[in-house]
Design a protein around this nucleic acid. Structure first.
Lengths: 328, 328
DNA sequence: TTGAAAGCGCTAACAG
DNA sequence: CTGTTAGCGCTTTCAA
């Protein structure tokens, strides 16, 4: 691999000038041309590692997410990637698998590799960001908020829960159950609170707790909870799913029992990109996953650029997409 | 951040000794202890950038895939990640979006960042690996084979196509159509060939070409092709989908027209992780995505470790999962 | 076994 | 505007 010294020699200038040409500092036109020529000839690519070592930074950011196989997070990743690569940054995708230890390991790597910042959807409320924050690196929280004083991009989870319940209510359903993610994850708790608020407002007498189930944010979690709900002496006539995967699990169980929506109403918080269901049968609260990714990346890049304003949290809007079919 | 000099000073040894301790070279026990102590106290983390610059390598590999939003590739990524992180490597996920230019840009970054190797599912048969191969870095092709003399991990695509068609035939379907990805992508062509072989063997008189459609490897591609097939004067009674997303699109269209499988038979090459369909209604040829990822990562790591045997291509087996329901 | 010292390729003062 | 020079933090001969 050619270095700036090779280029400098061929172009008849100093290495510093070559560096300047590649970093946009003012250099006379003829030298710029000479350097570009020489670089071309030698197929010179600046060595980012050396640059990193010298500048103590690198054009790489880490995106830490709990589940790379969840389309919600890959859509978000897509947004981060697009915004970052527009700015010349690359993104290292780190899958924490919802484990705090794996997450910590990735954050250590981010530091050791001089990455310039981190976007993280925390695994848990016990996630420890102190070590990375101690290095002074900017960190932006996405999806889930944290107890740290850092930038965040979230959505209105309570509203999502409320909208989902309301959508089913408007379609004529009454015993609307809820299957959510782990209660200790704030987004899950908020969504449940939204559903609960909608239900108690509409039917003060309803025993809402009997209709709530908390599972993992996975297909299997949705399946189990749905089975439990159907086994109740008074089963629900509809259900709000706390995320996309839970929704898939719930719908699978309903389909297996010939209760395919709209026979039992279903509202899902999150999109179902690969569902084979007729899209009109299910109410979907679309979450701004891609948009969150883009926003988080932009905020992070601003911080990397030196922005020192106080931390802010941006709340993105959701978009409800009601089922076109009413109660069967 | 503490450096090896700080650690050396505190431990009363030379920086070289600190380096040796962290790299496993023989150092007397007492010095090892002193160094570990000092490192602990200073919360020392070796600076990977400096290490990289010195050694001309880094414990990072790039995984370049055409579509990060396709669960097939994320499953593969998962496999790569697991195998790589076991070996202390991190993975940079690069989404080429099926564009050769984006792909080339990522390969350039891989070089500039001194990454030690690349696993790539090429965007296209025109993908240019010459620049990266010229640097001497190991490259492993996954999913799709290439014209280069490099390691590869693929599956038996022809067999997949054949199995899918056979599964439908066994279930009693006869006019079995095919919707595949772009014909110029070898995996797509092979799968089509497998289907074609099965069909002509079973029904020599059938005009198979009338029943074949080539689309993009996306949901929309599957939708359009399915609509075309249904518009034929003699529409098919079953269809083989060339990948998971095409399958989703095809099933969506069938569902909208009240032809949900098994009314029209469907066999999908690739898993449908988030389908809400009763799993027994569709024949699925499960592809070893995760396994491919793990295998590719292991091969790459061996090459990085200095393996210089001739390039080999590993072909992984598929697993067919027939629909439990026969023709309606 | 250990230390001294050179240098990986680049950038950023500092002079000129 | 341009060149000289001193490192960034680490590894790795080469001597001791």
């Amino acid at each position: 691999m050619a270095t700036i010294y090779d280029v400098a020699a061929l172009a008849g200038v100093s290495p510093a000038t070559v560096s300047r040409v590649f970093n946009g500092t003012r250099v006379s036109d003829d030298k710029v041309a000479a350097v570009r020529d020489a670089a071309e000839k030698l197929r010179f690519t600046p060595n980012r590692t050396a640059r990193s070592l010298r500048t103590q930074s690198s054009e790489v950011i880490a995106l830490v997410i709990p589940d790379i196989e969840n389309p919600y997070f890959t859509e978000m990743a897509r947004g981060v990637e697009d915004a970052a690569s527009d700015a010349g940054y690359s993104v290292v995708l780190c899958n924490s698998d919802s484990q705090v230890e794996k997450e910590a390991a990735y954050l250590r790597i981010a530091v050791a590799e001089h990455m310039s910042g981190v976007i993280i959807a925390t695994a848990d409320e016990s996630s420890d960001l102190d070590p990375i924050l101690a290095t002074g690196r900017p960190v932006v929280a996405v999806d889930r908020s944290t107890a740290y004083d850092i930038d965040g991009v979230v959505m209105d989870n309570r509203d999502a829960g409320r909208s989902a319940a309301q959508g089913l209510w408007d379609a004529g359903y009454r015993r609307i159950a809820y299957i959510g993610g782990p209660e200790h994850i704030d987004t899950a708790a908020e969504r449940a609170a939204g559903w609960r608020a909608a239900m108690t407002a509409a039917q003060p007498d309803l025993d809402v707790d009997a209709l709530a189930r908390f599972a993992s944010f996975r297909v299997e979690g949705g399946r189990e909870a749905m089975q439990q709900l159907l086994a109740l002496s008074e089963p629900p006539d509809a259900v709000v799913a706390g995320n996309n995967l839970i929704g898939v699990g719930a719908i699978q169980v309903l389909t297996e029992r010939d209760l395919t929506p709209p026979r039992v109403g279903v509202a899902v918080i999150g999109s179902l990109p690969f569902t084979t269901l007729s899209p009109s049968a299910v109410t979907v609260v679309r979450l701004p996953a891609r948009h969150m990714g883009v926003t988080a990346a932009r905020m992070l890049l601003e911080r990397i650029g030196g922005d020192t304003r106080p931390a802010r949290t941006v709340t993105l809007r959701n978009e409800i997409q009601p089922a076109r079919t009413a109660r069967a």
